[in-house]
Design a protein around this nucleic acid. Structure first.
Lengths: 187, 187
DNA sequence: GTCTATAGACCGATAGAC
DNA sequence: GTCTATCGGTCTATAGAC
């Protein structure tokens, strides 16, 4: 762990850049999300920013990973409850929602640098959520007739799709809509 | 209606271009979806294509509208059934699904030329679907406890979100997942 | 009606000064 | 470590030949 000075400082600066980038994107959106725009936002030149993140792809991957980290920082362990909480929080960071949605669609191309990130992320979410649904059926809180894998896919899909509706019309209450769906799945 | 020669021919050529563009995008995807790529696909130069559609925005709006037309051409009137049928068909035209998903996200920006198109489209879909759900509750085919507006938003969201999962992993069976959700909503 | 050619903007990446 | 400057690429749009 204990790194030598210069290297550790680089790491710290990367973290600082990511924190500022997330904050700026969250509040002001990101439009084209070019390296230049993010560099302006964090107060560096384009070349200065790319000194820390070798390429655009590296930068955006770091942003995606960091966002997941931040979102999951205070999970309670009740996955469905956490999901609603994260979705409610998302309504306050529309720029991040927009960035994430945009990149997840662009990443559909198998040659896109974030393709594997998103594929693995969705696969992981489906597996973990299906497992929680199975547990919910055992403890009697969720309907016994549900197919855990299918239900997991539907919950994730609804979460993503509500983001599209929210981005187009910010009066859409994502958390309330999602909570309503989860309510229908209770035993 | 009956237009004079030259004008009518321009209209017909526009339709022909749109039909080819939809077919090519459907089968081969659209990647960056630039005017040049679509021009190549339909066998015109970029300038030649823009002779019929004054700008990129006009072209893509026309493609979006045309796709809705084609999709709804043989609706049965049973909206939920039609939805599953359209989703099943979508699995065969991944390029169109990708294009639509991408543009709907980009259009979140209120200054985007397709912003109003998508906003109105989603609003319209929610209203019509909510009305059908209300009818389904009256005739006893759908659960009486459902909030029609919320349920409409959730069904639309699930449909969109399943597209994201499908685009990242084409083995995802969108129609089956959606049908499972609709099954859970039945009385 | 369709083309070639090009203008003008923006992109990511890199070289090199300091 | 951060900058300016710049390269080569791609994009939309348009001017003008045929």
């Amino acid at each position: 762990m204990a790194r030598r000075g210069a290297y550790a400082k680089g790491i710290a600066k990367r973290e600082e850049i990511l924190a500022v980038a997330l904050d700026v994107i969250a509040r002001h959106g990101y439009r084209g999300a070019s390296v230049r725009e993010i560099a302006d936002a964090v107060g560096l030149s384009q070349a200065g920013l790319l000194h820390y993140f070798g390429s655009k792809d590296e930068l955006f991957t770091a942003i995606l990973v960091k966002r997941d980290e931040v979102d999951n920082a205070d999970n309670t362990g009740d996955m469905l409850e956490d999901l609603v909480r994260i979705v409610a929080h998302n309504a306050e960071v529309p720029g991040l929602v927009h960035l994430f949605a945009q990149l997840s669609i662009e990443a559909a191309d198998p040659t896109h640098p974030a393709h594997d990130f998103f594929r693995e992320r969705y696969g992981f979410l489906r597996r973990v959520l299906a497992e929680r649904i199975r547990e919910g059926q055992v403890d009697g809180s969720l309907r016994p007739g549900l197919d855990p894998e299918r239900t997991a896919a539907i919950i994730i899909a609804a979460t993503d799709g509500l983001q599209t509706q929210f981005l187009l019309d910010p009066t859409v209450d994502m958390a309330a809509e999602l909570a309503a769906l989860l309510g229908e799945l209770r035993a």
